[in-house]
Design a protein around this nucleic acid. Structure first.
Lengths: 229, 229
DNA sequence: ACAATTTACTGATAATTATCATATTTTTAA
DNA sequence: TTAAAAATATGATAATTATCAGTAAATTGT
């Protein structure tokens, strides 16, 4: 894949597209590319970040550990997403851990490049702001979903979300394969409950599985379930 | 209270402090002051906002209606907070309703003043960005709390939150009095469940009540409860 | 290839929480 | 002030969800 930010297609999806040619050049010169293996962390809750991570390939889960030892996955980030922005902007340690769900390829961009551009290029700042506004809106939706919907509804929603955001493979399975535990951490339930609901959905013909892979069989019914029928 | 933004103390608490003298002057000339009575909306979910609201007095609940007809309160905003920013920035209709919990006094600032400054004053944009980063972090915490803590723990947390953010009156009651229904909508539970837990906390000497007013009696025990003892 | 470890699954049961019914108190408005 | 309406409160019960215990299957490392 192209190693100069100026030519990187990934950039199209995130706020880096609002950078000028010169700014991008600087970023490109200061960035380093990293490979993160499945299960390894990009960073962990409490870390002070010296830069942001731009995802070129693979998927990362952003999660927060609760007092009872369970992780809640707040977001799944894939190609084009920039991680660690919030921490760099507010100059605080991160409140989330980022762990690779897949093997990942990411670019690390030192915070200096970012902060510099934030102060000089209002367009870039505005673009970052728009992204953050969007994230915040999504977070509000998640809050309402978790508090108002049943686990079953949230499970159905999670499968639809996975299909819409990560697509399906050639055999009709969700392209992003998560462990049952990760699924339960996205949904915010006990692993056993998640597994039970998967079995139930399978029996009812809403989904089909093969090993840990899950495929959507009856999207309409899943949607109806989410809406509460 | 002072009616020129330049001299308004409220400004100190929000991103407007990053505006220049001239920008503030323009804002002040274009703003209008509104009084909102308890229970009335500043704006409602789905509205397209033509500006932002700067809270001078009173408290507003920001909530979202779910399919089953229940409101989830996502945030309580008081003096100094700016509402509707997100909608103005992303030029989308709001995803939240803002309803007065108290009688309120707010300044309406047309979006033109905001957008103009956003494009011209990187400091202001950065300041807004920082605020939004903070809100996003808080939203993440809410997600984790709701999904990982029991209703009882969240109730305890809500009381502590109310004390820390809105203080107590002379008689030791929480300064912000919410209806039981509002409390249940903050916590994300059924109203009856909230009431039951209030009774239980009262019996255990954690809180005391008088009418709808609630006072914290044993902060340490409430904290222990939140932490899971 | 195989033992070891992890992950997935199922059943039984307990704990939590919601819902429905109904009584009481408080607030509102004529 | 007083009837009506709304909010608060409590009990009984049902539904949902978590937890514990244990088995089966899959994955990993050697």
């Amino acid at each position: 894949m192209e190693s100069r930010c100026e030519n990187c297609i990934v950039r199209q999806f995130n706020s880096l597209r609002a950078m000028s040619k010169e700014e991008l050049k600087k970023v490109s010169d200061s960035k380093t590319t990293k490979t993160i293996k499945k299960g390894e962390p990009l960073f962990e809750e409490g870390d002070k970040l010296n830069g942001v991570y731009c995802v070129r390939n693979g998927v990362s889960k952003l999660s927060k550990l609760s007092a009872n030892g369970k992780d809640q996955i707040v977001k799944l980030a894939s190609k084009g997403e920039v991680l660690g922005q919030r921490s760099v902007i507010s100059q605080e340690s991160t409140n989330l851990s980022a762990i690779a769900v897949d093997d990942m390829e990411v670019c690390f961009i030192p915070k200096e490049s970012i902060n510099n551009t934030l102060q000089k290029n209002p367009n870039f700042t505005l673009e970052v702001l728009r992204h953050m506004a969007h994230d915040l809106k999504e977070a509000d939706d998640v809050i309402v979903n978790i508090s108002q919907k049943t686990v079953k509804q949230r499970m159905a929603e999670a499968f639809l979300y996975l299909k819409n955001n990560f697509g399906e493979d050639d055999d009709g399975f969700l392209a992003l394969t998560l462990s049952r535990e990760d699924i339960s951490n996205v949904v915010g339930t006990a692993t056993e409950s998640a597994i039970r609901i998967i079995s139930e959905f399978k029996k009812k013909g809403l989904i089909h599985t093969s090993g840990k892979k899950i495929g959507i069989k009856d999207e309409r019914k899943l949607l109806e379930l989410v809406e509460g029928f």
